[in-house]
């Protein structure tokens, strides 16, 4: 049943997500096209137009990224609200599945959609960087193979010095940061869904209730993140006082681990709230 529920969740979410990804893809292609028009041999007027177009495109792309990220969260929240707590909830909650399966399907699909959107954003960044790289290497007049070899050597050196500067290998850091991002993403989804559920406690103003719950939880999260920063500040101050050099990862890792633990704890709390609201406190309009 979990697979079937996820299939229908995906069907409900895919269209707006694909539209957003399409718009982001369009702005990416536009940005790449403008990048390829930039040429140092241009006269001042053309160069000015080209640079202005590029700035506008990058701004458009930037807002596209923000829009996609926030838009995905909104779409997930709206779908969860509609299918769980409005008239559609009568169908959702009378399906022959447990509330745990129902919530798991909604959460897993939402997390996968959000991760897919983040992967899409990452891919567009790589495309733009690739376009810059190709264009600059074409303009430089050097042999392509030579440039590739030079860039390879620079990246290899950076990777070697990464461990000395940061106290962790580049691969290790990327793995750690990827896990961190995935858990942060799951936590964000759980908070959004949990807030929609908490909003149901305000029976007359359910949406306002959800928004209030969200801001309350985000405020608590801000306080926790300040507390999580304390070990980092204390290590930095101690290193400065003793004139020591501490690798960057050693400084930031306690903060990241506390943030990770908080993300896990808040996800579990939100899951329990969601289940409680969907079983014991369910009161459809």
């Amino acid at each position: 049943m979990l697979g079937k529920l996820m299939k229908y969740e995906w069907r409900g979410l895919r269209l707006p997500l694909l539209i957003m990804l399409g718009i982001l893809g369009g702005t990416t292609l536009l940005t790449c096209a403008i990048i390829f028009t930039i040429n140092p041999k241009m006269d001042n007027v053309s160069a000015g137009f080209s640079t202005m177009s590029l700035v506008l495109c990058i701004l458009l792309y930037y807002f596209g990224i923000i829009g996609c990220s926030v838009g995905t969260m909104l779409i997930i929240a709206i779908r969860f609200y509609k299918t769980t707590y409005t008239d559609q909830g009568y169908l959702t909650h009378t399906l022959p599945v447990t509330s745990t399966t129902l919530l798991a399907a909604k959460t897993i699909t939402a997390v996968l959609c959000y991760l897919a959107m983040l992967a899409g954003i990452f891919a567009t960044i790589m495309i733009i960087l690739g376009a810059i790289y190709i264009h600059v290497s074409n303009l430089s007049g050097y042999d392509k193979v030579y440039i590739d070899r030079m860039v390879g050597e620079v990246l290899s050196e950076m990777s070697m010095s990464f461990r000395e500067d940061y106290g962790i290998s580049l691969g290790g850091f990327i793995t750690f940061y990827t896990v961190f991002m995935i858990i942060a993403c799951i936590s964000s989804i759980m908070i959004i869904l949990g807030c929609v559920s908490l909003g149901q406690l305000y029976t007359k103003h359910r949406i306002i209730g959800a928004i209030i719950a969200y801001f309350a939880i985000v405020s608590v999260q801000q306080v926790i993140s300040y507390i999580a920063m304390l070990p980092t500040y204390s290590k930095m101050l101690r290193a400065e006082a003793l004139s020591e050099t501490i690798p960057m990862f050693e400084v930031i890792s306690p903060t990241m681990i506390i943030s990770l633990l908080w993300a896990v704890v808040v996800s579990v709390i939100m899951h329990i709230i969601n289940l409680h609201m969907m079983t014991k406190r369910l009161n459809l309009e």
Binding site: G12, T83, D87, Q88, G89, Y90, L91, T94
Partner: peptide, 10 residues
């Protein structure tokens, strides 16, 4: 098999 008083179709 339950038919609510609301329209629950998507």
């Amino acid at each position: 098999s339950y038919l609510p008083e609301r329209t629950y179709l998507d």
